[in-house]
Design a protein around this nucleic acid. Structure first.
Lengths: 251, 251
DNA sequence: TTCCAGAGTGTAGCATGCGACGTGTGACGT
DNA sequence: ACGTCACACGTCGCATGCTACACTCTGGAA
C-alpha cells in the first residue's frame, strides 16, 4: 500500500484514495478481514482518518464493517456487475447525447488526450497494461460525463466504475484486443466532435452494451454457474429509435 | 431536533437520521453555520458520531465542511433540482418497466398500502400535510424501485429524493391538489398490477415529468430569475416509442 | 474421544485531549 | 475619524484513551 505523502490535503481523503487504490489493484484480497489498527500503522496515521475513509468505502459497497471483528473487503459479484452495467447504460447513453450538444473546446482537448493515451497503450506488460487500460478508459468516459453538465451523474458513474474495477475484469486481451476497444472510443470521439449527438449516443450504447455482454459472459464462465443475463429490456430506454446505423462502421 | 433514543443501533446512524430529518424539516436553515460541538451537545453524544454523520451528509451534498469555521447547511438550488429530475426520469421510468415484470404479491401489498396512505391524506394542516405527502410519495416510489431488483438504483433515488425534500418544495396545494397527485399514482399502481410494463413506465414518465415541469417553474418563479428549463431532450431516452396512450386517461 | 465452559485476545465504537488555523474584535497609531 | 495590527476565541482535524463485545482456544468433565 502506498505511503501517505506530507502535503496539504485532508488526511482522511488521502487514506481513502490509498485504500481504494489498494483494493482496486488487488493488494487487498476480497473476502479478507483487516483492522483499523492495521491500516493506521501501515499508513502512519491514527485510526480516526482511517475510520472516516472506511466509512466512505463502506457506503460505496467496497468494504463492510463487522462489529468487533474487523473490516471485510468485499467482492464485486456478478449481480453487482449487472446492476452496474444497467445503470451505466441508462445514464451514460443519454449523458453522451447531452454532452455532444454542450461540448466546448477544452472538453474536446481533454477527450483527445484521453483517446491518445488509450491508443498509446500496448500490451507489453499484461498485468499492468490491463490496469492502465481501465484507468485510461475511465478518464475518457469521465470527460464526457462531466461535459453533460450533470455533476451528480458524473460522480455516480465514477463510483460505479470503481466497483467495476474491484472485480478487476477487463475484456481487453481476453475477448477483445486493444485495437477493438480503441476503435469503439474513436467512434464515440468522432461523432461527438462532429456534433452528431444521436450517433454519439448510439456509439456509446453499442460500446457499453458490448462490454457488458462480453464481460458478464466471461466472468460468469469463470465460476461455472452462468445464469443467462438479459439486458435487452434496456434497449427501449437507450434510444434504439434514434437515427443511427444499426451496425456501427468497423474497419 | 429529536433526541437520540437509547436503543441498540449505531450512534452515528441515529445522529445521521436526526440531522438529516432536521434539515429536511427545515429546522436547520439552509445557509446557516453550525459546529460539531453544538450538534453533540444537542443530541447528548460526543463529537465523533456527529462528525461521521456529517461526513455522510456532506457526501450527499446536504452540508459542507468549512475548515475551522463550521458546518454549512446547503440549499438545494434550481440547478440541483434539474440534475435530480433528469436522473429520476432516466432511472425511475426504466425501473418501473422492469419492476412490473418482476412484481410479486408482497410488493403489491406494500404498494397498495403506500397508495392508500396517500389517499387518506387531507390538507387539514397545510404545513405538516405537505411534509407527510412527500413522505408517502417517497414510500410509494421506493417500493417500485426496490421491486426493480436494482438495489443501487433504489438507494441512489432515495438520496436524490432527500435532496429534493431539502428544498421542501411540493406541487401539492400550489399548482396541483391532492387528488391530481393521487390520480397519478393510482394510474401507475393499476398499470403495474395489470402487468402492463410499458404503460406503467409511461405513467411514471408522465408523473415525474409533470412534477418536474411544475416544480421547476414554480421554484424558479420564487426567485424571479427564471432561465428556461429544457428536459425535453430526455424524451427519447424514456421510451417515448412504447405503445401507450399519448394522453393518459383521466377521470 | 467429545462436548462444554470460561478466560484471553483483539476489535469496533465512542469519548476526549490537543494543536493549528481562520475569524472577529478591540486597541493603537496616524 | 479611519486604517492597521495583534490578540483572543471558536472551530475543525487528528490522535489517543477506554469500554463492551465477538471470537478463539484451552482445559476439564462426561
Amino acid at each position: 500500500m502506498k505511503e501517505i505523502p506530507a502535503d496539504r490535503e485532508s488526511l482522511a481523503d488521502q487514506v481513502y484514495e490509498s485504500i481504494r487504490d489498494a483494493i482496486i489493484l488487488g493488494e487487498l484480497i476480497p473476502g479478507s478481514l483487516h483492522s483499523m489498527y492495521h491500516f493506521a500503522a501501515e499508513l502512519h496515521v491514527s485510526r480516526t482518518p482511517v475510520r472516516e475513509a472506511l466509512i466512505k468505502l463502506a457506503d460505496q459497497g467496497m468494504v463492510r464493517f463487522e462489529r468487533n471483528r474487523g473490516i471485510r473487503i468485499l467482492l464485486t459479484t456478478i449481480h453487482d456487475l449487472e446492476e452496474i452495467f444497467s445503470l451505466r447504460l441508462l445514464l451514460e447513453v443519454p449523458a453522451t447525447f447531452r454532452a455532444t450538444d454542450q461540448f466546448v473546446a477544452s472538453d474536446r482537448r481533454q477527450l483527445r488526450q484521453a483517446l491518445d493515451a488509450l491508443n498509446e497503450l500496448r500490451p507489453e506488460d499484461p498485468k499492468s497494461s490491463a490496469r492502465d487500460h481501465l484507468e485510461c478508459d475511465a478518464r475518457f468516459h469521465r470527460v464526457i460525463m462531466k461535459a453533460s453538465g450533470n455533476q451528480r451523474l458524473a460522480n455516480f458513474i465514477d463510483t460505479l466504475r470503481d466497483l467495476q474495477q474491484v472485480r478487476g475484469a477487463s475484456t481487453v486481451g481476453v475477448t477483445r484486443d486493444f485495437q477493438d476497444v480503441y476503435q469503439d472510443h474513436l467512434d464515440i470521439y468522432e461523432r461527438i466532435t462532429a456534433g452528431d449527438a444521436a450517433g454519439a449516443a448510439a456509439a456509446m450504447k453499442n460500446h457499453i452494451a458490448l462490454t457488458a455482454r462480453l464481460l458478464l459472459a466471461q466472468e460468469a464462465g469463470d465460476v461455472g454457474s452462468a445464469p443467462r443475463f438479459d439486458l435487452s429490456w434496456l434497449d427501449m430506454f437507450t434510444a434504439n429509435n434514434v437515427s443511427a446505423p444499426q451496425a456501427p462502421p468497423r474497419l
